[in-house]
Nucleic acid binder design. Structure first.
Lengths: 187, 187
DNA sequence: ATTCCCCTGAGACAATTTGTCGCATGGCTA
DNA sequence: TAGCCATGCGACAAATTGTCTCAGGGGAAT
């Protein structure tokens, strides 16, 4: 595939903030993005990220949804507050429609499910709403996937409280814990 | 639990546009929403919906993603162009993260996967970004119940062919057989 | 009529997933 | 500090699934 370039940018080397608690992943991605012309900085927690942004807010950001016990969503919100123009791509291994909706509403530019490669992230940064012809998938979600999406939705509607969600869903907390620990069903 | 009310609205009966090519679903939903105080109008295609909006744009809208061979996404875009204030909930039996992201970027207020009930839609209209405090989840379906509803839908969409449905749902035919043999109850 | 092909119901048994309990930790509040 | 609740996680039994297999029942093409 062809590389998507950011040559059009006024800046020579746009700044990019990568926030993920997985240091290995962070490193790999940092390298790939540096090669694509970004000036990369990494952070592994919301606190780290914010202090790094004190001096200057990054123009681009890649934020993981699940940061240890914090939610990347709050970081998205804060980054957007600091600078409306920041383009943020949310990344996660536990993708769900519920969190995707939240992320976009909070101002994320795009939302991608891991695994992703650097080119996909580049494309996500470039994307503007409506410019893609989305073919509507003809096949419904698998039951496993449906369950995952539903659980994520109820969970987010209940402030991520596992115990409450388990009670509402009429399932055992232990079971919910185990389901949440797994990756969403491959589609 | 307690019903979510829209009493706060200036209007006595806010107008609601429902767009779905499934006339049966449309009818059922229209009835449910009327009971909840909306002045409901139904449309079964983008063209219908737009001509209905010529005189006055609805304050609320429920749009199905898959309208025959059209995409509900373009309708979302148009409705938002006509009136930025319209609150739109996107609905679909073919949910995906990609379309959810697109819908929100185009201005939809929320995005829900079928099956849903009227109370969930009410909650979606109420919901504002990031704010999960007023989570007044009515009485969501239990996961078991959700699965049952979903299976029934896919099954009927496939002419009650158990084998085909099992493949689509990515589950074993034997398992589907067993689930179908059980009572639909379990709330 | 016979052969394919696909659907269906159902038994049996192993592989997984859940239901339950229990326990330790940590935050919040009276 | 005690009481309450949420959370993570180990352990083991109970229940559900995954697999395989067999025995029909149409329908369509030969």
């Amino acid at each position: 595939m062809n590389q998507i370039s950011l040559e059009d940018c006024a800046e020579e080397n746009p700044s990019l903030l990568i926030v993920d608690d997985d240091t290995v992943f962070c490193g790999v991605l940092a390298k790939a993005m540096t090669k694509r012309g970004f000036q990369v900085i990494c952070a592994h927690s919301i606190g780290d990220a914010l202090s790094l942004c004190e001096s200057a807010v990054a123009e681009y950001a890649i934020v993981d949804l699940k940061l240890s016990n914090e939610s990347g969503l709050v970081l998205v919100e804060k980054l957007k507050t600091l600078d409306q123009g920041t383009r943020i791509v949310m990344l996660t291994g536990y993708a769900s429609i519920a969190t995707a909706v939240e992320a976009i509403k909070l101002g994320a530019t795009h939302y991608l499910a891991k695994p992703v490669d650097a080119d996909e992230i580049m494309a996500a940064f470039e994307r503007t709403s409506g410019d893609s012809e989305l073919s509507i998938s003809a096949n419904p979600l698998s039951v496993g996937r449906l369950e995952w999406e539903y659980i994520q939705r109820i969970l987010s509607e209940n402030d991520n409280n596992v115990s409450v969600t388990a009670r509402i869903l009429n399932m055992h907390r232990r079971t919910l814990q185990r389901k949440l620990a797994k990756r969403p069903v491959r589609e």
